[in-house]
Amino acid sequence: MKATFQVPSITCNHCVDKIEKFVGEIEGVSFIDVSVEKKSVVVEFDAPATQDLIKEALLDAGQEVV
């Protein structure tokens, strides 16, 4: 499964690193693409990962998800 999250609070590479760390810890996540320019995060994943778990990880990383 693939999901795109709009994350307007992404401003720098530190944000990218933190997002990759938090989302990458979720079992089932196979790909993460964070774009500072587009302020988006694209995640490819399989169970047990879910969109809700990914959104929670983004929030835990200090990001706003819309």
Rank of each mutant, 00 (worst) to 15 (best):
F22R: 11
V66Y: 06
G24P: 02
K39C: 13
I54G: 02
S30T: 13
A47I: 08
T4S: 09
P48L: 00
D60K: 15
I32L: 06
E56K: 15
V7H: 03
L53I: 10
E37L: 07
L59T: 06
Q6I: 15
L53T: 07
Q63H: 15
S9E: 07
E25Q: 14
K21R: 11
V36G: 03
S35F: 05
M1S: 11
V43Y: 00
H14G: 12
S30A: 10
H14N: 15
E64F: 12
S40R: 14
S30W: 11
G62L: 14
V65N: 05
K39Q: 10
V23Q: 00
I19Q: 00
I19C: 03
S9D: 09
K2Y: 06
A47S: 10
V16A: 09
M1C: 14
C12M: 10
K2N: 06
K39R: 11
A61N: 03
M1K: 12
D46M: 12
C12T: 12
I26V: 14
M1Y: 07
V29A: 03
V66T: 11
V29Y: 00
V42Q: 06
V65I: 10
P48V: 02
C12N: 13
V7R: 00
F5E: 07
E44H: 14
A61K: 01
E20G: 07
E25H: 09
V43P: 03
I54S: 01
I54N: 03
I26M: 05
M1I: 10
V36W: 07
A47P: 13
E64M: 14
V7E: 05
S9M: 08
V43K: 01
L53Y: 05
E64L: 13
I10T: 04
E27N: 09
E27T: 10
L53C: 04
I10H: 02
A57Q: 02
A47N: 06
A61Y: 05
P8A: 11
V34L: 03
A49G: 02
Q6G: 08
T11K: 12
L58M: 05
G28C: 03
A47G: 05
I19E: 03
V23S: 00
F45K: 00
V16T: 05
A49C: 05
V41G: 01
K18F: 08
I26E: 00
V42P: 01
V65D: 05
D46W: 11
A49H: 02
A57V: 05
I10G: 04
Q63T: 06
F45P: 01
K39H: 08
E37Q: 10
Q51P: 12
K18E: 07
V16K: 13
V41L: 05
D33L: 11
K2S: 08
P8E: 10
I10R: 00
S40T: 15
K21W: 08
I19Y: 00
A57R: 06
S40V: 14
E27Q: 12
V34A: 06
L58C: 00
E20P: 02
V16P: 04
Q51V: 15
V34R: 00
K18D: 07
C15I: 11
N13F: 11
Q51G: 07
E56R: 15
F22Q: 06
Q63V: 13
Q51L: 15
L59K: 10
G62Y: 12
G28S: 01
K2I: 12
G24H: 04
K2W: 09
V42D: 06
L58Y: 01
E56Q: 15
L53W: 05
D33F: 13
L58Q: 01
H14I: 15
F31E: 06
T50Y: 04
P8S: 11
N13I: 15
I10Y: 03
E20L: 15
V41R: 00
K18Y: 07
F5S: 05
G28R: 00
S9I: 05
V66G: 07
A3M: 09
Q63M: 15
K21C: 05
Q6L: 14
E27L: 11
V23D: 03
A49V: 03
G28F: 01
Q6Y: 15
F22A: 13
P8H: 09
E44G: 12
A3K: 06
D17H: 10
Q63G: 05
V29W: 00
E64S: 10
T50L: 03
A57T: 02
K18W: 10
D60I: 11
E27P: 11
V66A: 10
Q51H: 14
D17E: 14
Q6N: 12
V34M: 04
T4N: 08
F5A: 05
V42Y: 15
L59E: 09
F31C: 09
C15K: 06
L58T: 03
D33S: 13
E44K: 09
V43Q: 00
K38E: 09
V42L: 11
T11I: 11
S30L: 13
K2P: 00
Q6T: 09
I32S: 00
G24D: 03
D17Q: 13
V66S: 09
V34T: 04
D60Y: 11
F45E: 01
I19S: 01
F22G: 04
Q6P: 06
P8F: 06
V43E: 02
G28T: 03
D17S: 12
K2Q: 06
M1Q: 13
V34H: 02
K21H: 08
L53Q: 12
V7K: 00
E56Y: 07
V29N: 01
K2C: 14
V43G: 00
V7L: 08
E27D: 10
S35Y: 04
P48K: 01
D46G: 10
K2L: 07
C15T: 10
I54Y: 02
F31W: 13
D33K: 11
F5P: 04
I26Q: 01
E37T: 09
A3V: 14
E25G: 12
P48N: 02
K39W: 04
F31L: 09
S40Q: 14
V43A: 03
K55G: 04
C12K: 10
Q51M: 14
K2E: 06
I10Q: 03
V36M: 09
A57N: 01
T4W: 14
T11W: 15
I54H: 00
M1H: 14
K38L: 12
G28I: 03
F31K: 14
S35Q: 10
L59P: 00
C15R: 06
I10S: 03
D60V: 10
F5W: 05
S35K: 05
A47Y: 13
V36K: 05
V23W: 02
S40W: 11
V23L: 12
I26G: 00
Q51F: 14
T4R: 09
L59S: 06
F45S: 02
V66N: 08
I19D: 02
K2T: 10
V7P: 05
C15Q: 12
Q51K: 14
V42C: 08
I26A: 02
K38W: 10
E56F: 08
V42E: 07
E44M: 13
G24L: 10
G28Y: 01
V23N: 01
V66C: 13
I19N: 01
P8L: 10
E25Y: 07
K39N: 06
K21E: 06
C12I: 08
V7N: 04
C15F: 09
A61H: 04
E37N: 06
P48H: 01
V65P: 07
V42T: 13
G62H: 05
V41E: 01
